[in-house]
Every structure is written in structure tokens, then in C-alpha cells.
Amino acid sequence: MKIIDIFKLLNEKFSDSIEYLDDSCFVKASPSKWEDLAVFIKDNNKLKFDYLMCISSYDSGNKETYGVAYNFKSTSIGHELEIRIEITDKESIPSIAHLWGAADWHEREAYDMMGLKFDNHPNFKRILLPEDWSGYPLRKDFETPEYYRGMRIPKDKTYWE
């Protein structure tokens, strides 16, 4: 199925929470219905998205919204789908780790690097950085701290010159 056909199928049930732009190749969803939508695309006989390939997070650059992009594939049918969800700093996204096991670590990484919060995650904490790290490094407005636990982090060449 082409992405426009997938969108039409989804639109029958989730017309109030999804969005598709003509020039894009992804379906934009709102976080409120995301859990139902995820169950639908996994179990529907025409979709069968049994494989979550990747979760990417992105900073839209306007200091308000941060996004997460899910890439699904159906191993039996062969079609692919990208779903994006954009939230502000105060909102959170329902976790889909109970549906696709791959989402577990990917969601933790999205939290670690971009500060996106996921509800009902089985083990929600930082995955790569130390637990006491402050800030989310992949955000555009992230400033490297001067010190971490007493270790200085020089930021320019003057340290060597």
C-alpha cells in the first residue's frame, strides 16, 4: 500500500487526530490517540506493521516543539510508514514499548538526548548519559556545562594554546 492509501484507511477511524500534507511522506498524529492508533496499525489485516525499524527524535528549532518519528515496516506485506508526533515540553507521548519491544530503548534514547517524555514506559530513565546529567544534548539550545563532577569541559582552543 502507498502511504496515501494507508492514510485514507487510518482516516476512517482517526480522522480527528491524524494529518497528512501533500508534500510530505509521513502521517502526523496527535499524542492523545497514539496508543489506539498504534494498536490499529499493528493488528489491522491490511496494514500489519509488525516491525518498528527506528524511532528518531528531532528539535523543530522554534524552542517550543520537539518531535518524534516512528518508522514502521510490515515484513509480510512489505510497505512502510512514517508517523510523526510533535509535542511541547510540557506534554508527553504514550509509550508503545508493550507493542513493539524495539521501542523500549529507542524511547529511552529519545528521552536521554531530546528530553521527550513517554508515559507508561516499563523502565523510564536515561540510557546513555549518566543519571545525574542535566540537560538534553541534542536540543538546539543545549549548552555544554562548564564542569561535570569536578571535571572541567573546555570548549575552545585556548585550553591548549
Binding site: 548519559l129 571535571m151 569541559i153 573546555p154
Partner: peptide, 20 residues
């Protein structure tokens, strides 16, 4: 020795093990 390729933008890298 010095942080290597991470010396400027590596927020997570110690800039030389001789610092510790």
C-alpha cells in the same frame, strides 16, 4: 591525549585523560 575529534563539540568527552 586531548579529546581528539571530540575536542570542541564533544559535550560528553574528557578533553585529555591527563586532566584526571
Amino acid at each position: 591525549n586531548s579529546g581528539g575529534p571530540y575536542w570542541q563539540h564533544g559535550y560528553h568527552v574528557l578533553k585529555g585523560v591527563d586532566l584526571i
